[in-house]
Design a protein around this nucleic acid. Structure first.
Lengths: 126, 126
DNA sequence: GAATATTACTTGCAAAATGCAAGTTGATTT
DNA sequence: AAATCAACTTGCATTTTGCAAGTAATATTC
């Protein structure tokens, strides 16, 4: 557990991973757009270590040479169950937006199924 | 997710919570005995914030006035599924001891059942 | 095609968090 | 009564974070 947390167990790494679960792929500036407002140097350092540890990978953007696409690897996609349990815990102990509530209601109807489907979708876009 | 991580999403907090999942209750010096070697000031500060946010609670030790017992609250016990998914991820990507491997094999046979039983055990000792 | 804007970063620096060693206080054992 | 134990606290050096500004390469606009 300690070793796992050393790889991705800090707030910013997990938020990066979360963004990638939603978006399938993000550019550097996409990450900067999320509401948590990560500092640019921290973002760069987290992307570097997540890449080094094989949780995300860098690839070329089809449209432009100056853009970089970040994606989850299988190792990163396998964190989906962890993220889902974090969400479900948060649902119990925080006031969520209607949007999030509706989403989690859907998930709870068939958690295994949701994870399997999302996992397949993410794996297909690697 | 960000709010959840603000409460318990750092390495030391999660290791404290893990110790309490195994042990049901720990004293300050019990935490110091775990292999990860947390510094005493960090331990004190984490115990304080986990107590403030209602994830653990302090109680009197039956044997001695000078000892303090720390336990998970329901809010803390509800993190069990998160911890289990962290373990299961780690199983896939790290070399574990035979002991841990055997434990996780057991868990995987009936994850829901294991969580339910462990949860009940922990709740009973609150 | 030169000027402007965008993208993905890097750098410098102040503030906060961490880690280590040592110290303190009250209860307990010898 | 003296020594030990349990739960911390304190001081300080090191590391990490966060903010603002800068840079270099590509892309777009005039």
């Amino acid at each position: 557990m300690s070793s796992s947390l050393d790889l991705w167990g800090d707030k910013w790494s997990l938020l990066i991973i979360r963004d990638l679960m939603y978006a399938k792929s993000c550019t550097y500036s996409d990450f900067l757009k999320s509401e948590e407002k990560i500092a640019t140097n921290i973002l760069a350092s987290r992307l570097e270590t997540l890449d080094e540890t094989g949780i995300i990978s860098k690839s070329e953007h089809p449209d432009s040479k100056s853009k970089v696409l970040y994606k989850l690897t299988q190792k990163g996609i396998d964190l989906l169950p962890v993220l889902m349990e974090i969400y479900l815990w948060g649902e119990k102990y925080f006031q969520l937006s209607e949007q999030h509530k509706a989403f989690l209601e859907e998930v709870k109807k068939d958690k295994e199924g949701f994870i399997k489907a999302t996992r397949a979708k993410l794996l297909s876009s690697i």
